[in-house]
Design a protein around this nucleic acid. Structure first.
Length: 786
RNA sequence: GCCCAGGUGGCGGAAUUGGUAGACGCAAGGGACUUAAAAUUCCUCGGUCGCAAGGCCAUGCCGGUUCGAUUCCGGCCCUGGGCACCA
């Protein structure tokens, strides 16, 4: 019978569904929480998903065979813009659209043979789920971590909503639609992630199982600077200043003696005051007007060192020097105090500014004691600043969890009582794409009673950023159907933290930082058993074709369904795991897919054609071949196990190919081959995490009754992997000149001696003095000559 | 500009703590089988010189350490990613 994936794959998928693995319900085994980033239900699985889930499934299946009780769940990050846009486009509602997409993708996932625990499936857009997303928001509010403020915010004109700082990606673009982000002043809800800045930073140290680049990115994003806030006394012609002092922040108080001028951000409240009544007043006002028209982003990238003198001066508390105060747009109002002391000698930007505006550069030496002096005399205080900003979570969109707040004329912003959760999304809404958020159309939704005074209230019409939903889903998986609380603490304690998290690098900051924040808040509130959610993190690389990320617009998309139909899920999975190490970019190659298919065919023929005659007599001349085959098998068990442990799936598969080749060599060279079903069974076990269907099928063809999934992971016999011969490289002055074969127990003296006497080495050593002979056990001899 | 990651055959990629560079696969070329093709199978496959044995060169470039460097150190070049005047 030929290898026909289209026959055997559905068969085993049905079979596995009928007999679910003991998995997450098996309490007597050690736990292992294997998590892949849940997908947005766009309706179509793409190769990036396949890669993500194939990796997750290898780990799940491997860990199960190793005896772990594995939690391997899946769900849907189902709120968000695309569903709403589709609703507008098709004149429908996001809910049915999303449900349809989920159904489609579920079928695709099952076709891939990924072993999920479907009983734990979650959907963030379901009322049962978003009830708790809202509950967590109220918890934040209770703990003083949610607040409303008017601020300059990022506005995406296409998505018609505000964005968090983390969602504005390179070149000032919206993370989702790539539109250029605008600035708007709006009153919005924020989560006080800055309260956790220090812990989010220091706890990065605990994340020994995270890739270094992700940790560095998070560190930089949090951006901690330790320094001093120093008061400079102001000397100005304007006698009616509201404060006599100018506060600046510096990380380099030791350079205080080198200060030659000061700079304020144009938005600094002192800027206009200082120039009042001076000849510079007009110029200052003009400059402020000019910078108002520029966006923060343009200011940041312009690198311009333009500025104007305010007419005011400051007295340097370190040495009494009187230095001019300027304004310039390279100083940002949003960081520190919006004012800086300028030390051209020690700061590139200050130097560039000084040169452009003819300001002096001072040679005064550094002073390491000045900080202490100023702090002790009350002129300065120690200060730590962060780049991290609070998380703006309001979204002016329909398809998200409504922010559970009611506005009352008398009582202000009042939280919806817990018993009234969830605040449900209304269904009497039309999706036209016109006007404000669709939620404002629903009378039923808008109308609310103030929970405090019973008066007429108005509901908050913004919804929560969908990153709120995905910031705690891994906790929900531990207890996905609980209607009394977000999850049971004991169950969370059983499963958390996630032992292995797998997903794309694009979430290095966004989702991974928000999730860490949520976990810490829930930990502080006594809910989460851990203060870090993900013990180990694997960031998988992108799937590209012809050097570009697969996308419809580029026309280089390969449809997983097509590959599954043509070659089977096993081939798709195997190729994706074999073509590249998981953290690297993967170049799609149609011919490479065929290569993986060929390999599975070779395994198929090997296992389905193996005769089961008796073992040959030990005296048989080919007995040594059998020893070699066994040795190769055990070496492969060892190597594949070690490779999977370090996620080197590509080399693990290479080892399986080598083993298969060794089987064929053996078959070709021996007429009396003996019974190999045990050995081939081991090969199938090793292959099963990567290509589960074919392994299961052939396993049964070999006469096994139980599922291959229930088999323990093969163990190697240390005695069997030992080679009886070794090839020793012979070098002269580090250059390879010859190789010699020795029995494994050959003594160093014998090896060194023989190495010096081979025909080839003699050619190179003739007439030269041998200085020394170096022997590296089991590897090489290097003869050093002069 | 700063911070990461990475540069190995025609391609994807392998190489324990420094120890035979190129595992495994793809592509390519040649042979077998076949009426033919597909499938399968066998051989060759970094460059260069050589009839051959073999030599020389080769892991982005230039140096260094070492008996020995893809691996360690210093300096450059290039590619990808992140941050973007954070005082």
């Amino acid at each position: 019978m030929d290898y026909q994936p289209s026959q055997i794959e559905p068969k085993w998928q049905d079979e596995w569904e009928k007999q679910p693995t003991p998995d997450s319900t098996a309490t007597e085994r050690p736990k292992y929480y294997d998590l892949v980033m849940f997908p947005y239900p766009s309706g179509n699985l793409h190769m990036g998903h396949v890669r993500n889930y194939a990796i997750g499934d290898v780990i799940a299946r491997y860990k199960r065979m190793q005896g772990f009780s594995v939690l391997h769940p899946i769900g849907w990050d189902a709120f968000g813009m695309p569903a709403e846009n589709a609703a507008i486009k098709n004149n429908t509602h996001p809910k049915p659209w999303t449900e349809k997409c989920i159904e489609r993708m579920k079928i695709q996932l099952k076709r891939l043979g990924i072993s999920y625990d479907w009983d734990r499936e979650v959907n963030t857009s379901s009322e049962e789920y978003y009830k708790w997303t809202q509950w967590i928001f109220l918890l934040m509010l209770k703990r003083g971590l949610a607040y409303r403020k008017k601020a300059q915010v990022n506005w995406c004109p296409k998505c018609q909503t505000v964005l968090a700082n983390e969602q504005v990606v390179k070149d000032n673009q919206c993370w989702r639609c790539e539109s250029i982000v605008e600035e708007k002043e709006l009153e919005q809800w924020f989560l006080k992630i800055t309260d956790y800045a220090d812990r989010l930073l220091t706890d990065i140290e605990k994340l020994s199982g995270w890739p270094e680049p992700v940790k560095i990115m998070q560190r930089n994003w949090i951006g901690k600077s330790v320094g001093l806030e120093v008061d400079f006394t102001i000397y100005s012609p304007n006698s009616q200043l509201r404060t006599p002092n100018l506060k600046i922040f510096t990380t380099r108080p030791d350079t205080l003696f080198g200060v030659t001028y000061m700079v304020l951000a144009p938005e600094h409240p002192m800027a206009i005051e200082l120039s009042k009544g001076t000849p510079q007043e007009k110029e200052v006002l003009a400059y402020i007007e000019k910078t108002k028209k520029e966006s923060t982003h343009d200011r940041a990238i312009s690198n311009s060192k333009e500025g104007v003198f305010t007419g005011g001066y400051a007295i340097n508390p370190a040495n009494g020097d009187k230095v001019p105060i300027w304004i310039a747009d390279y100083v940002l109002m949003g960081y520190g105090t919006g004012a800086v002391m300028a030390v051209p000698k020690h700061d590139e930007r200050d130097l560039a500014f000084a040169q452009q505006n003819d300001l002096p550069v001072s040679d005064n030496p550094l002073d390491n004691n000045i900080a202490d002096k100023l702090v002790n005399s009350g002129i300065a205080k120690r200060k730590t600043n962060f780049k991290l900003r609070d998380w703006l979570v309001s979204r002016q969109r329909y398809w998200g969890a409504p922010i559970p707040i009611i506005y009352c004329e008398k009582c202000g912003a009042v939280p919806v009582p817990e018993n009234d959760l969830p605040v449900k999304l209304p269904m009497d809404v039309k999706f036209t794409g016109e006007g404000a958020s669709p939620l404002t159309q629903s009378k039923e939704f808008m109308h609310a009673v103030c929970p405090l005074c019973g008066g007429v209230g108005r509901r908050e019409t913004d919804t929560l950023d969908t990153f709120n939903c995905s910031s705690w889903y891994y906790l929900r998986y531990s207890d996905p159907h609980n209607n009394e609380k977000p999850f049971d603490q004991a169950l969370a304690k059983k499963w958390m933290p996630v032992d292995q998290y797998i997903g794309g690098i694009e979430h290095a900051i966004l989702h991974l930082l928000y999730s860490r924040f949520f976990t810490k808040v829930l930990f502080d509130a006594g809910w989460s058993p851990t203060d870090e959610p993900f013990k180990n993190l694997l960031t998988q690389g992108m799937v590209v074709k012809d050097g570009a990320k697969m996308s419809k617009s580029k026309g280089n998309v390969v449809d997983p369904d097509y590959i599954i139909e043509k070659f089977g899920a096993d081939t798709a999975r195997l190729f994706i795991l074999f073509a590249s190490p998981p953290e690297k970019e993967l170049e799609w190659n149609d011919q490479g897919v065929e290569g993986s298919y060929r390999f599975l065919n070779r395994v198929w023929r090997l296992a389905s054609q193996v005769p089961s005659s008796n073992f040959p007599d030990p005296s048989n001349e080919k007995y040594s071949d059998q020893i070699k085959l066994k040795r190769k098998l055990h070496q492969t068990i060892k190597a594949v196990t070690e490779d999977i442990e370090k996620f080197s799936f590509n080399t693990a598969i290479a080892r399986l190919m080598e083993l298969t080749n060794t089987f064929y060599d053996y078959l070709n060279n021996n007429s009396n081959i003996g019974n190999l079903s045990l050995e081939i069974g081991h090969l199938l076990q090793l292959l099963s995490p990567f290509a589960p269907h074919i392994s299961e099928e052939l396993w049964h063809q070999l006469g096994n009754k139980d599922s291959i999934l229930s088999q323990p992971w093969p163990k190697y016999d240390p005695k069997l992997i030992v080679e009886d011969e070794m090839t020793i490289a012979i070098q002269v002055n580090g250059k390879l000149r010859d190789t010699l074969l020795f029995s494994s127990d050959a003594k160093e003296e014998e090896i060194k001696e023989k190495a010096q006497k081979t025909d080839k080495t003699l050619i190179f050593t003739a007439g030269k003095e041998i200085v020394k002979v170096i022997y590296i056990p089991k590897k090489l001899v290097n003869i050093v000559i002069k």
